[in-house]
């Protein structure tokens, strides 16, 4: 929070932002490309593998947004840990409800 930023750091930061932007853009194009290619060319094939790739791509985008745009990468390590560690609860929520969701499908059928 120093109110004065020297020129070198400034240029470095701006460059980092644009680099992140480009990465996010490329990943997004890749994702949309995957989705559309499935729709146009492989419609009757299962989408599961593509879905995995798209989830990974999205996680990558999320990483760049959090790390660069939200500047978290440059905070103290303990602060990063405190903010990201609780996300394991979400991971467990997601796993548990996914298991339940597929189980409901089995029950209903």
């Amino acid at each position: 929070m120093s109110s004065h930023l020297d020129d070198a750091t400034y240029h470095k930061q701006v460059a980092a932002i644009w680099r992140a932007t480009i990465i996010i853009a490329v990943v997004t194009v890749f994702e949309v490309g995957l989705a559309l290619s499935h729709y146009f060319f492989f419609y009757h094939h299962p989408k599961a593998i593509i879905n995995v790739f798209m989830v990974l791509a999205t996680l990558m985008k999320a990483f760049y947004i959090i790390a660069e745009f939200m500047h978290l990468k440059y905070e103290y390590r303990s602060f990063i840990i405190i903010l990201t560690l609780p996300l394991i609860f979400l991971v467990w929520l997601i796993i548990a409800l996914s298991v339940e969701g597929t189980f409901w499908l089995r029950l209903i059928q």
Partner: peptide, 11 residues
């Protein structure tokens, strides 16, 4: 995840 669970329980 509510949406996800509902979607997963559909064919």
């Amino acid at each position: 995840i509510a949406y996800g669970a509902i979607r997963m329980s559909k064919t």
